[in-house]
Design a protein around this nucleic acid. Structure first.
Lengths: 226, 226
DNA sequence: GAGTCATATATTGTCTACAATATTTAGTAC
DNA sequence: GTACTAAATATTGTAGACAATATATGACTC
């Protein structure tokens, strides 16, 4: 139980990340330094350092002498994120197919079996609403063995994806289809077919992107029955 | 001449970035906070904030309660960077082909004409040793119109690429070939052929990667004439 | 002489106070 | 009543001092 082993800035940073992702601090909200510091029981120094990290994660935007605001999630930004995910996770899948150990591949497979069971039990309601999907993608990224790739995807993009999911209820409405695509990707990795893994992953994220974009546009223009 | 409009941390951050990239502060060097602050004539507060940004750019690594060191450039890390560049700049080229205005495309073409002239005049010695190559790639990234992509590539990856070039003298040894590839990419963008632009860019960076890796391995194992 | 422990030093982490800038509010002119 | 100006307020940026941790030094044991 050597709990600290870290710095105040670190701890508070994680706490604020969670608050932003889950919407406790809403989009566009201004971050007041003295107040935030008081809430978390620290001084402004470490708090500002935590905010620097939030800025690096692109969860807040800072303007000199004016202050910091939580980013506004928009249709365009989500599109940007998915474009990047398509490219980077395609790479991750390729590298994972080349580099993953037998044990890691087996873990990935086990995860999918769990997913399947959950989807059956809950009729597709549960897992993809939560973190199951992110888990699958995160493991592949880990398996890429490319530390910089891991940092980019894990450090900033996935937090934003989680944020969209929480706040826009963007869970998958096609869990069976997504699971099937996951299964294909996993198979390609198991066989060490790097090119196929990349291609499947790109298509998978492309599908998710199109699906989400379609739903967001539908939300923006509520079904007219003209 | 309203020069400030920014913060001390910003300015000092840029200065330190330059020092790290150009090797004034060498790889693996420890960054002593009081000393650095004194050198730049600021206090430790803003300095630490600048260091947070350096950390976000992955130019330094921090360990709590121990300190910060400049990253060590390695063969493996360079490979990681080029893998990511291949994926992301492929995306950038695709988007640029879709989004670049006529004027932007013309600017890109002019840049290439300049490059060509420089290569002819200097017999391929000059431009690629400096920033000409980065310029070309940077403009395409800008033309992608994807702000997050611009941030990732411009904010951290390009600084590291510059750092490798400065410190490992990794200028291109195939300027004519590289220029030809640039020309092809530019043509694809001009014609709005997104798929081709992506494919060409990926091949271009893949070529550069293989070329550089080969030379680095040759350096590591100096030509044996067994 | 090598290794280990304790002390001393240096460095990072944190807090409080102050200065500079931006925002808000009140007042005045039209 | 609206638009502009100026004071008042609040917030961010910066500096310096203190606390906690890690590193270096030196004495002591085996």
């Amino acid at each position: 139980m050597t709990q600290p082993a870290t710095t105040l800035a670190n701890r508070v940073c994680e706490a604020i990340v969670q608050d932003i992702v889950t919407g406790v601090i809403p989009q566009g909200a201004k971050l007041n330094e003295p107040e935030l510091a008081r809430v978390h029981g620290i001084s402004r120094g470490p708090l500002r350092e935590a905010m620097s990290r939030l800025e690096a994660m692109r969860l807040i935007k800072r303007v000199p002498n004016v202050g910091a605001r939580v980013v506004d999630l928009s249709y365009d930004e989500l599109l940007e994120i998915y474009q990047i995910r398509e490219a980077l996770e395609g790479l991750a899948a390729r590298l994972a197919a080349q580099n993953m150990s037998k044990a890691e591949a087996q873990d990935l497979r086990n995860l999918l079996v769990d997913h399947e069971r959950h989807i059956e039990q809950t009729h597709g309601e549960s897992y993809f609403k939560q973190e199951g999907d992110v888990d699958f993608h995160y493991r592949i990224v880990q398996g890429s063995n490319n530390q910089r790739l891991i940092n980019i995807l894990g450090g900033e993009l996935y937090n934003l994806v989680r944020m969209y999911r929480y706040q826009f209820s963007l869970s998958s409405n096609r869990p069976q289809q997504a699971l099937k695509e996951h299964d294909q990707i996993c198979a390609a990795i198991e066989e060490g077919d790097a090119e196929l893994a990349e291609w499947l992953m790109r298509r998978h994220i492309g599908n998710a992107r199109r699906n989400i974009m379609q739903r967001m546009q539908a939300d923006a223009n509520p079904a007219g029955d003209s």
